[in-house]
Amino acid sequence: MSAPAPVPLASEPTQEGEQTLVPGVRPVSQRERIEARMAAPLTPRVPQKPLNVGLFDEDARNQLDLF
């Protein structure tokens, strides 16, 4: 009884370098990456600044009244 021949490992190029894949797992295609990005909710590129003006002024709400 002999051992089965080893299955060659698949690999894919990434930004970090060549990475091997687990047997039975196929690489994620560029189309799948784009579809996942499109399905994700939009997020701002930079954190939003608070709107501390008029009705939305959180700092003014926290002030004590003078009288």
Rank of each mutant, 00 (worst) to 15 (best):
L64N: 02
L21D: 13
L9W: 04
Q15I: 08
D57I: 00
L66G: 04
R45H: 06
Q48A: 06
P44D: 06
E12F: 05
E18N: 04
D59H: 11
P47F: 00
P13E: 11
V28R: 07
V28C: 04
M38H: 12
E58G: 01
Q48W: 04
P8E: 11
A3Y: 05
D59Y: 14
E18D: 10
D65E: 13
V22W: 01
V53A: 06
V7K: 15
P44E: 09
F67Q: 14
K49D: 08
Q15V: 07
Q63H: 07
A39D: 10
A3M: 07
A5G: 02
R45W: 02
G54V: 10
G17V: 00
E32T: 10
L51N: 06
G17E: 01
P6T: 09
A36T: 03
F67V: 15
T14Y: 07
P41N: 09
M1S: 12
T14W: 05
D65Q: 12
V7W: 14
T20Q: 15
A60H: 05
V53I: 14
P27D: 03
K49I: 00
G24P: 01
G17M: 00
P50F: 01
D65R: 14
L21I: 12
E16Q: 14
A5I: 08
A10E: 07
V46W: 06
P6L: 06
E16R: 11
R33V: 13
L51V: 04
P6F: 02
E58S: 11
E12K: 11
M38W: 05
A36H: 01
M38D: 09
L9Y: 03
L66T: 13
G24E: 03
E58P: 02
S2M: 07
